[in-house]
């Protein structure tokens, strides 16, 4: 088998006394789509944020494409990377947020072109061309000149995906990309993600969308209370879970689905600045 694109070894993270990640091990291979499932507070979002260093880890190591994230190993002693080098590492990783986080003062086109031009220093003309193609790809070819607040949530999230893709990342992280959307807007976003998965993008997706996990994921990781409880193909973990905690979670989630309820409406944790993330 080829080298893993991401390899997390014994990753731990605490917010004060609250230990959120308790030794996570995970390998993701190029082209794989991995979904992280688990109840609120299980640490899946925190783990995702640790991968591109929006949180600094307290223990363990995370390697992306062979690079140690956040540190430089000089003869066995770790040195924290400068802001500039951290930024350079993040360029390789695209991230999509629960609340989209589009830049409200920029048009859709400017949102997409900002980083390729300002960070990668590419020519605006060619970036603009590419941005239009990306907008077509996410089904928003006619929205280039709009401001984010003129779009629906689902459209904003698709722009956010296009914005991340404009940096040609090796890897895409999705942090509950459909949790803040009205139910009828979820489908369009999932369709874009499905296409992306088919095109061979390596993806880690934190989600409550069981259908997405079932149909698209190569591997499902079930987390609870800061540890990885169970890992496997969706056909095993979702159909025939080995652990009681996984069974409990799945029965709760599927009960919601059968109620005609929508999974994405599981009351989700919305982050407020200053509080520890879950």
């Amino acid at each position: 088998m080829s080298e893993p694109l991401i390899s997390a070894v014994n990753v731990s993270k605490s917010f004060g006394d609250n230990e959120v990640l308790k030794g996570i091990d995970l390998s993701v291979y190029p082209g794989q789509v991995v979904t992280l499932l688990g109840p609120s507070g299980s640490g899946k979002t925190t783990f995702l944020r640790c991968i591109n260093q929006l949180e600094t880890i307290n223990g363990g190591r995370i390697y992306v494409d062979g690079d140690l994230m956040g540190y430089e190993d000089k003869g066995g002693k770790l040195h924290t990377l400068t802001d500039k080098k951290v930024a350079a590492q993040r360029r390789e990783i695209g991230m999509v947020f629960q609340k989209f986080n589009l830049f409200p003062h920029k048009t859709v086109l400017e949102n997409i072109c900002e980083a390729p031009v300002m960070v990668q220093g590419r020519k605006r003309r060619e970036v603009v061309e590419e941005a239009h193609a990306l907008l077509e790809q996410v089904g928003l070819g006619d929205k280039a000149a709009e401001y984010p607040n003129q779009l629906s949530g689902g459209q904003q999230q698709r722009v956010a995906i296009a914005r991340a893709l404009a940096m040609s990342p090796k890897l895409m992280l999705f942090d509950e990309p459909t949790s803040a959307l009205d139910p009828e807007l979820v489908g369009d976003v999932l369709a874009v993600m499905r296409d992306l998965a088919r095109s061979g993008m390596t993806m880690i997706v934190v989600t409550h969308e069981m259908s997405f996990a079932r149909e698209v994921a190569d591997e499902v990781v079930f987390m609870d209370d800061g540890v990885v409880v169970e890992v496997g193909p969706p056909g095993e973990v979702l159909v025939n879970p080995q652990h009681q905690r996984t069974k409990d979670f799945l029965s709760r989630v599927t009960a919601d689905e059968e109620d005609g309820g929508v999974v994405e409406h599981i009351p989700d944790h919305v982050y407020r600045p200053g509080e520890p993330r879950t």
Partner: peptide, 23 residues
């Protein structure tokens, strides 16, 4: 400096209501 905030001034109406929490 208010561009991109508040009620939209131009452009076609989107299919659904925009996320009011954003702007």
């Amino acid at each position: 400096f208010n561009r991109g905030y508040g009620t939209r001034v131009s452009g076609p109406a989107p299919a659904t209501d925009p996320e009011s929490s954003q702007g």
